[in-house]
Amino acid sequence: MKTGKITALLLVLITISASLYAQEKELVVTYKYDKVHLRYEDLKSKEPIKDNESTKFFKVYTYENFCLRQVGIRVAGRIDFKSGFTVMDTTYKHNLVDYTKGQMWHIASIQNAEFARYVKEPLNLFKWKFEAVTKDILGYKCAKATCTFRGRDYVAFFTRELPFKAAPWKFHALPGVVLEVYSTDNIVKWEAQSLKVRHRQPHPEIPSASDEVITLKEYLKLLKHSKLNEEDGHNKTILKFPDFSEQLKLTHKNSNLPNSIEIFDLDKP
């Protein structure tokens, strides 16, 4: 009986210690991101070839119940359609996750369209299936999970050996730190390159202004509008250069290959 009480007390102390440790510290994960871009080498060929984009690296900062991914791009010359003026924005943006509220905010990216800075979505988007497979990554034992999400099948490896939660992109519903995730069609892959625990640093607050946040439904409407504008401009180009109409049609068709991570059917209501 005494042994059981001592064991229970030790477990409580370990839990409290881990909680305090996570609150005082933050984990910085550096990920390597590879994306394969599909394109046509010959306009007359219908067989796509794979052309690797340059590898990108980004960092995820996680502490307490929050996780932030720093996006290493700056926005310049963003057009404000209401005023007609060009707004210069030179601040770094972040994707944010609030584990307590079960919400995440990701930066929208639509060219030549009026859109808010963040798309708000629920955290638990992925229906993960856990498998009895393990893998060692950066010295940590990782468990395997699989899922299907918006047009792609994914495999992820995550570890429970750290008192944090962290993940690249939107893979935040797994109970631990995701150290590797990739699509089974080999289009996208994220790999953790390094882990660093440090004292918590100040980070930006979660966006709350109505002009900064939109829903996924609103985002898809803007995406569809942008696509229609692109098709209209393409059709006008064909009318202007009728001798090259077939080549232009084929080029435009090729440019609409599913190169985005998420594949949406914009024709659905």
Rank of each mutant, 00 (worst) to 15 (best):
T90I: 07
M104Y: 15
P48F: 06
L239S: 12
F115S: 14
Q111G: 12
E131L: 08
E191S: 15
V181T: 09
I6D: 13
P168K: 04
K93F: 00
G72P: 02
G4V: 08
D136N: 13
Q201Y: 02
A132S: 09
N52Q: 14
A192W: 01
A116I: 00
I214W: 02
V87W: 04
L11R: 09
K196W: 00
K221A: 09
P204L: 02
F164L: 05
S210C: 00
A108I: 01
F158V: 10
N65P: 03
K82R: 06
A108H: 05
E205W: 01
L10T: 07
D153W: 00
K253S: 13
V87H: 06
L228W: 08
T215A: 01
Y99P: 14
Q103M: 15
P258Q: 04
K165T: 06
A156H: 11
T237N: 10
Y219R: 02
P163L: 05
F58H: 13
Y33Q: 12
D243L: 10
L195V: 05
G233E: 13
V97F: 10
I73W: 04
L228T: 09
I49V: 15
K129A: 09
I16D: 02
N256H: 13
P48E: 12
V178D: 05
I49N: 13
Q70T: 02
F130G: 01
D42S: 14
N229C: 05
F57A: 01
W105R: 05
I6P: 12
Y99Q: 05
K240R: 08
I110T: 05
A156C: 06
I187H: 11
E230T: 10
A18H: 02
D267F: 01
E47T: 15
E212Q: 14
T237Q: 14
D267Q: 11
W190L: 13
S17V: 00
F157C: 04
I6E: 12
E212R: 02
A108P: 07
D185M: 09
A116R: 12
K101H: 11
T134D: 05
L68Y: 15
A173C: 11
L250P: 08
T215P: 09
K268P: 06
R117L: 07
K56M: 14
K35L: 04
H203M: 15
G139N: 03
L9A: 13
A113P: 09
K196L: 13
L125V: 02
D211A: 06
H252W: 06
F66P: 04
W128V: 04
D265Q: 03
K120C: 08
N254Y: 08
R39P: 04
T90A: 07
V155C: 09
C147F: 02
V71A: 08
A108C: 04
V36C: 08
Y61L: 08
E53M: 10
K127I: 03
R160G: 14
W190F: 15
V119A: 01
K32G: 13
K50M: 11
P163F: 03
R74V: 10
V119T: 13
P122F: 04
S210D: 14
E180C: 04
T55C: 05
S83V: 04
R198W: 00
R160N: 14
G72F: 01
F130I: 06
Y21N: 06
L10P: 03
E262A: 03
L43D: 11
Y31H: 03
A192Y: 03
T215N: 07
